[in-house]
Design a protein around this nucleic acid. Structure first.
Lengths: 230, 230
DNA sequence: TTTTCTATTTTGTAGTACATTTAAACAAAA
DNA sequence: TTTTGTTTAAATGTACTACAAAATAGAAAA
């Protein structure tokens, strides 16, 4: 059906269900009315009547918004607008299982990009204790260089700690989300590749070097990944 | 209720509705059975019976997965697993209106981090035409330096083009999502601040300089933003 | 005034019924 | 044989009713 040359140009007509429409309408409604977190929303029946649909449909739409954390509902009290958990919605779909190959690659690059950009926040906010802790993690790796699964865990611990040190909660959660993907891709490597700059080297740079040194070091650390990109 | 000292330690008991549970169960089900995109799923009634809940509940859960693009449903044929549109789910919640102040700041930093990390992908993939086009955008700015709203548009065009040039679709869409937030924060600036390195300077660096130069230039371009961070 | 109980209200769940769409099977025509 | 048109059946989409469960607000009691 999609493979005949003719219909290539014709875009598939998107059939929207009532739930889809109601979802959009509700979103607009929340925006237009400039609801603030904590504000009470009309109850389900009222919404259903206003929109001229069944309560069923309204509930499906509300269920979506609830999943995204945009609203919270309590029996009797009704619904209130909430601050959605940005990352939460992301985490739901971010599973290597569900993501196609291209996007997987894209996300991997996104991660590399982030790591290369970490320096500024790091040098702004890192504390001595953090670096000490980071060093512990790095040393830990040397000892247990044997097992493969442990190597990945340690890899994750080290880079995760870096994100934590930025003091940016969202960034940290973002990285956390990308972990399964990272882990998945690393697990595809048959032979573990060690960069020219090790974790311990990076720690030393953080102690004694400047931002530029760190960027350079991080690049060398990740170089074998970058080399695979086309 | 939350403010009395006693209950501080007690974590709020998360009341899960059936729809929440079914959503999780379905997710696990999809994973466990290792469904591939295109595979057919059991029909609603069967799911309802298997899980021992009403079709209503199942539909709420399915509605969520459908919104995220994890499944697609066709009448008669049933449901099939699909590749979720990662960014799509993000876009839904990413509206400055709904996001709290802290997260807003976090995301802004996330963006800065990305921009600082762009260099590697840029130097790997940029083409001469891209740089030419970028130059046009940069020049455009000089001419129309007057209007405020135009300045923002141009700013967005320039940085947007940079992301496009990375050849990473996901990254580009990600940036696109962050635009409203970026715009919102920039609009808070009373006096437009010009960095030490202009857009045109960056273009020149792309033409003649190396990655390090670009990073340095980008930092100076964004410096006034970095200076505001704590 | 503070606590406890009660009544009411709203969400959560279940179940039935029917409309709508469309894949699939079949029949007819070229 | 291939294409085109028609029918049928099956699954989703929507509506409606009914009731359970929870939690607030208000009444009653201490």
């Amino acid at each position: 059906m999609q493979t005949n040359g003719l219909s290539n140009d014709l875009e598939r007509i998107a059939h929207k269900t009532m739930a889809d429409i109601v979802e959009i309408r509700l979103r607009d409604f929340l925006k237009k009315k400039a609801f603030k977190p904590g504000d009470a929303l009309p109850k389900e029946i009222e919404l259903a009547e206003s929109l001229g649909v069944s309560r069923n449909v309204v509930r499906e739409a509300l269920s979506r918004l609830r999943m995204l954390g945009m609203i919270e509902t309590k029996r009797k009290r009704g619904m209130v607008l909430a601050s959605p958990d940005i990352m939460g919605s992301f985490e739901r779909v971010l599973d290597p299982m569900f993501i196609n190959e291209n996007t997987l690659r894209d996300i991997f690059e996104l991660r590399l990009t982030l790591e290369m950009g970490l320096a500024d926040l790091l040098y702004l906010r890192m504390k001595k204790e953090d670096v000490d802790e980071l060093e512990e993690i790095a040393k830990n790796q040397k000892i247990t260089a044997g097992q493969h699964s442990f190597r990945i865990k340690n890899e994750i611990a080290f880079h995760g700690k870096l994100y934590t040190m930025t003091g940016n909660d969202t960034l940290q959660r973002f990285q956390n989300m990308l972990l399964p993907i990272f882990g998945y891709l690393v697990s595809l490597e048959k032979v573990p590749i060690i960069g020219k700059v090790s974790h311990l080297d990076l720690v030393n740079i953080l102690r004694k070097g400047g931002k530029e040194d760190f960027r350079q070091g991080m690049f060398l650390h990740l170089e074998h990944h970058f080399k695979k990109l086309k």
